[in-house]
């Protein structure tokens, strides 16, 4: 659906060149929610703004729905842009127009008839739950309501793609969750491809199918959220995930304790239905080793439940090896930590 090829964007000239994106390649499938995560200054904002050419790349190509946007003239680009909706961190609504007129804005650009505008806008107002606010001005709305107007406006031209530029970064946690839920809902309902950028792992974990980690203008790691999240490879990715549940100090304490020699620490990861099975307790009952949980998370990634436990096993070394093998046989992932 979206393909970025060798995208480079640099600012300035001569000796003062700063490169925001460096030969970046990325492809997003139709119907998926693709997240790009990175620290501020990593280039993620430039990246998303290059997709609808609000920012023109210095070199490289941008393909959306089979069209090379970078090769189009102004007029053709304007037409293609209608297939790409966008929402923003600061909403960017017209302050001089009502909620209704803001949502009608993209339709009026293409001279839609009054009656079809009315039908469409009312539909969208219902979708985002703002039926009672259609005559209000943005200044009279809360942040979450403003973003709902932004989403409705972005959907008015029935786009193929929705770009979310830090769409929840200015919202409080509860409002963030309600907006994420709405995004997930429209993704499913319209099979809408969504690309979002964020600096919050929580956002990625809640709704994304795939994720790319951007660092210094390049993508350092990408893949299914479950893979990247549970088995982060790059140090930046680990930073983001650790930031999400920062108990590394606690973990160090647990690891440095004075324990019997006959013990081993394993990291056990399980995914999907296995999260709810009593695999661990059954296995240790059979092998006769004891265990202590040093650290653990049980949560969901999008709709997939997962668990990740750091467990210290105590007992006969051979029994511990058997325990480990049995856990692996039953489909858990086990990593030896020490």
């Amino acid at each position: 659906m979206i393909e970025l090829r060798h995208l480079t964007k640099s600012y300035g000239k001569g000796t003062h060149i700063t490169t925001a994106l460096n030969e970046l390649d990325l492809s997003v499938e139709k119907g998926e929610i693709f997240g790009v995560i990175g620290h501020s200054g990593a280039g993620k904002s430039t990246l998303i703004r290059c997709i609808n050419l609000l920012e023109r790349p210095t070199s490289g190509e941008v393909w959306v729905d089979g069209v090379n946007l970078t090769a189009l003239n102004t007029k053709a680009l304007q037409t293609e842009r209608r297939k790409i909706g966008m929402i923003f961190q600061h909403f960017n609504l017209l302050s001089s127009a009502t909620v209704y007129d803001n949502i009608a804005f993209p339709l009026r650009l293409i001279h839609t008839s009054k009656s079809s505008i009315e039908k469409k806008v009312n539909e969208l107002l219902a979708l985002v739950g703002l039926q009672d606010h259609s005559d209000k001005y943005p200044a009279q709305l809360s942040g979450g309501q403003k973003q709902r107007v932004g989403i409705a406006r972005a959907l008015a031209s029935e786009p193929e793609v929705l770009l979310c530029d830090e769409a929840t970064s200015a919202l409080d946690p509860q409002t963030t969750d309600s907006i994420l839920k709405l995004l997930l809902d429209i993704n499913k309902r319209f099979n809408l491809t969504i690309v979002l950028i964020t600096h919050e792992m929580h956002v990625i974990q809640s709704i994304c199918d795939r994720v790319a980690v951007i660092h210094q203008g390049g993508i350092v790691e990408q893949g299914a959220v479950t893979d990247v999240f549970l088995k982060p490879k790059h140090v930046v990715t680990r930073d983001f995930i650790r930031g999400e549940s920062d108990n590394s100090e606690l973990f160090k304490q647990a690891m440095s304790g004075d324990y019997p020699l006959k013990s081993q620490v394993l990291k056990i990861t399980y995914l999907g239905g296995k999260t709810y099975e009593s695999i661990l307790s059954k296995t240790v009952r059979e092998t006769g080793v004891d265990f202590a949980i040093l650290q653990g998370t049980i949560s969901t990634i999008k709709d997939t439940p997962y668990g990740q436990l750091v467990v210290r096993f105590e007992g006969d070394p051979e029994d511990i090896v058997v325990t480990k093998d049995r856990l692996i046989q039953q489909g858990l992932e086990v990593e030896v930590m020490g």
Binding site: N52, L54, L77, Q78, T79, E80, R81, R82, I84, G85, M86, F88, H90, N92, L93, L94, S95, F105, P106, L109, I110, R153, S157
Partner: peptide, 15 residues
């Protein structure tokens, strides 16, 4: 006028 609002309109294909 807020630069972001102009950009949003540009993004929607406004001339």
């Amino acid at each position: 006028v807020d630069r972001g609002v102009i950009e949003a309109a540009e993004g929607m294909g406004a001339s």
